[in-house]
Design a protein around this nucleic acid. Sequence first.
DNA 1: CCCATTTACTTGACAACATGAAATATCCAG
DNA 2: CTGGATATTTCATGTTGTCAAGTAAATGGG
Lengths: 142, 142
Amino acid sequence: MTSRIDPLTLEVVELIGTIVARYHQEYEEAAAKHSLTGAQARVLGLLSRGPTPMRRLAQQLKCEPSNVTGIVDRLESRGFAERRLDPADRRVKLAAATDAGRETADRLRGSLDFAREPLAELSDEERTVLRDLLKRMLGTAP
Amino acid sequence: MTSRIDPLTLEVVELIGTIVARYHQEYEEAAAKHSLTGAQARVLGLLSRGPTPMRRLAQQLKCEPSNVTGIVDRLESRGFAERRLDPADRRVKLAAATDAGRETADRLRGSLDFAREPLAELSDEERTVLRDLLKRMLGTAP
DNA sequence: CCCATTTACTTGACAACATGAAATATCCAG
DNA sequence: CTGGATATTTCATGTTGTCAAGTAAATGGG
């Protein structure tokens, strides 16, 4: 079963595992630098793209809506987010980043060096190749 | 600052973010299939390579040793792991997988399809290119 | 129009994970 | 042998996550 995979594929899988681990670690660290948790940073990143219904946040985070309530609560209590009513549907609450929240999200993005610094190792051409291979892997490519 | 990054690099960074998210999701799901949490699955994976001091587990997981205590407790209470004394240093406790634990770890590894299935999209040659690019990114290559 | 159903969100109870500080036991250097 | 470092655990606390139950608002069939 497991042993039927060729060594090359195994090696790539291992490399991807390493990348995932490193990415996560750096993301947590960057978030912590702004005294946010990883989850809070992720939500703030989503909110910086525009006001979003709680429901939609839950879908994007792939978690239960009741979980999002708490995360937005904590962002709100620190002045990074606020809840607005959706005029079109009064059941919906739109979570939105405040100015402070947007500013923090920007600085956070700026300090997310992962893959920026390592990617500097690669030439433009190589980055293009990498991009296309990753897209194929993700099934995003044609 | 942030805007100084070229679009290509940004695209690759985004793709890597997507890969990380998908990897994590699939890992959690695979673990859940064996009624393990992600953290438990990770520890069990480490233990399947051999008995390991608690301290070392904490280093590998990049977390506090006191956290590992609880995770191993839960693995132990379900018969997947056990603690042994290190004859060489009586302060140390070695966490080790039981037979049941090793078996579960094996089945888990087998169901970790991520990057195996998507990699099937790529030819051998492309996988080689991908491997080398990833290695360069990780600074593993010469 | 009205009622039943569905949808959006919150609350509360609970488990896992994570940190930090303090306690215990052991090792080791001087 | 003593003092300091190391390995682990325990405890208090906070965040993340689930699930079940509850409230409020939209929606569709009679």
